[in-house]
Design a binder for these strands. Structure first.
Lengths: 232, 232
DNA sequence: TCTGATGATGTCACTTTGACACAATCAACG
DNA sequence: CGTTGATTGTGTCAAAGTGACATCATCAGA
């Protein structure tokens, strides 16, 4: 017998989509990567990058593939699963399960629109228009996750280039949280957290006191800030 | 035209399962609700309660249904989505997506085994044997989520009966975290957090100083402990 | 009535935070 | 070449929170 056991026939088989909340920080603003629907439904409406999982594909692979295909963005920074939405009442085509992912990366310039999306670009979170499907809900969940994780983990370095200053890191916190932080207390906190920042050089060549350049560690999400950095 | 748009044919359609990490506290121990596989694969092996989502069913409804069918447990306490696993390399029957849920409830005695599970019972977390599928990984994620959430939310009351004492609440923290907490500092912390506990009565009828009975609030996960309770 | 058990309240040193001032250093400008 | 403005590192201080501990209050049962 070649197939001794099988999934019961009563089990529903659903198309599975991945949608990516890709965030970055630029110009003091928290930015969201948005695409535009090239096909029905919601044709022409802005949406999160994403698409259907293919046969034999894992979820994170599908998320990275859709991100690259639709926006040309290589999520080198950080990718984590966010939550799963659906399958009911979220797609006019019928029941669709959507596994949302959260991608954090340093700002690398304007993405190229490609694939089946007519355009893809970074948009300030405050200026995000109504999105297709339930992507507004997914985006809100992603931003809240990012905000919360900055408190108790070292994830903020995922937004930073390989080498960055304390001021750069503070700008990430200020953009994601939408608040102003005291530079001196912030520096005291992050430099006093063991295993968070590794000093690698001193930056000069611009006005002002020379700044220490730091490097994050390989897995910034593993850094535990205890006690956490607290938002005002 | 009755079907103007449809899910593309390249999209894979997957059977979707829900698996539930149901936790409670009894006798000073963190307890996990385990079922036993009645069918192949993994027949006879312990596993988490769960099963396949049916047509027209939402994910949380499926989780509650499987919990009731397999164990007779009514997850009145708290139910939240945990994470999604798969679809590859987790089920010998082929690709299966599993959406895991976390259920927290007060201890209500021995569950009745029913449905297609030959037995269901609360097992101390420390004594959990190897589980079927990837349920060991799922269980570990659920316990870690519960441990983390006790730090910064009021979720611990989900483990408690409608009325409870500070000592009861502290027993929850000690069981979930596996540590001993100072009773006086703990009481100072939780009673000093606004919106966490509502005193409702004074309990007498047993030796010792009369204890104040408290009631949790409707949505304990919404209570924010800032600064959080920290594990030693 | 005494005793042990249980829980509420209080004390104290130490740490961390929030809000400041100040010194150090460099590029750019005159 | 000195001055200026900008930027960053270090320091101070009061207030709040925490960990560790002692004491008191109250009740059931011996």
């Amino acid at each position: 017998m070649t197939e001794p056991v099988a999934v019961p026939g009563t089990a529903v088989r659903l198309p599975v989509a991945v949608d990516v909340v890709a965030l970055t920080v630029a110009g003091g603003d928290l930015m969201v990567l948005l695409a535009t629907r090239a096909l029905e439904p919601y044709r022409g409406r802005p949406c999160l990058p994403g698409g259907f999982v293919l046969d034999g594909e894992t979820l994170p692979r599908a998320a990275l593939r859709e991100l690259a295909e639709e926006t040309g963005v290589d999520a080198a920074g950080h990718l984590e699963q966010l939550a799963t939405f659906g399958p009911l009442d979220r797609d006019p085509r019928g029941p669709v399960l959507s596994v949302a992912y959260l991608a954090l990366s340093p700002f690398t310039g304007i993405p190229r629109g490609g694939g089946d999306a007519t355009a893809a670009q970074w948009v300030p979170y405050a200026d995000v228009p109504p999105l297709a499907f339930d992507h507004g809900t997914i985006l809100a969940a992603g931003v809240e996750r990012a905000r919360a994780k900055l408190e108790y983990s070292g994830l903020a370095t995922a937004f930073c280039p390989p080498e960055f200053t304390i001021a750069d890191l503070r700008a990430v916190y200020e953009a994601v949280w939408g608040v102003r932080l005291d530079p001196r207390n912030f520096a005291r906190k992050v430099t006093g957290t063991p295993g968070f920042l590794v000093p690698v050089a001193t930056r000069t060549g611009r006005p002002g006191h020379p700044a220490t350049l730091y490097r994050g560690i390989a897995d910034p999400a593993a850094v535990v800030l205890n006690p956490p950095v607290m938002r005002p």
